[in-house]
């Protein structure tokens, strides 16, 4: 994961996120520039504090068609504490061909190894590099 997009994303989301935070996990939300729609689901939800959980990201175009070949990254941070997670989540492999082109059926990208080690507000950041270009979004999740 590159540092650059995190920076950009954090700046973009800025205080505008406070209005956008009404969007919650389990709902599709439009990415920053509007290229995609992303739905994040936590499994289990709510994730028990201090325990590993999974994040399932579903990525579609604005018209709802799944984006199956994007590069998707998800991270979680606690801005008030200036830290991220103690873990390094990993994307489950998609269906890859001999040239290592991978497809994620139905636009579903599953990440194992998330952990909220503290209660409080976590920012979930999603970055998509897809057929329409790069775009990102974030939402705030209150862990308790």
């Amino acid at each position: 994961m590159t540092r650059a997009w995190l920076v950009g994303l954090a700046l973009l989301s800025g205080c505008t996120t406070s209005s956008a935070t009404s969007a919650s996990v389990g709902e599709f939300r439009r990415t920053q520039v509007g290229r995609y729609q992303v739905k994040l689901e936590l499994e289990p939800e709510p994730p028990p504090l201090g325990e590993l959980f999974r994040v399932r990201a579903t990525v579609t175009l604005r018209d709802g068609r799944p984006v199956e070949t994007a590069k998707v990254e998800v991270d979680a941070q606690m801005p008030q504490h200036e830290h991220g997670m103690e873990t390094r989540p990993r994307l489950r492999p998609g269906e890859c061909d001999a040239e290592d082109r991978c497809k994620f059926p139905d636009g579903i990208y599953i990440f194992d190894g998330f952990k909220f080690h503290m209660s409080g507000d976590w920012t979930l950041l999603v970055h998509v590099e897809g057929p329409r270009g790069p775009d990102s979004t974030s939402l705030i999740y209150r862990a308790r």
């Binding site: 540092r3 995190l6 941070q77 873990t87």
Partner: peptide, 10 residues
């Protein structure tokens, strides 16, 4: 995981 630099977090 990596953490965005201080400035952006502020």
């Amino acid at each position: 995981m990596r953490i965005a630099p201080l400035a952006s977090l502020l």
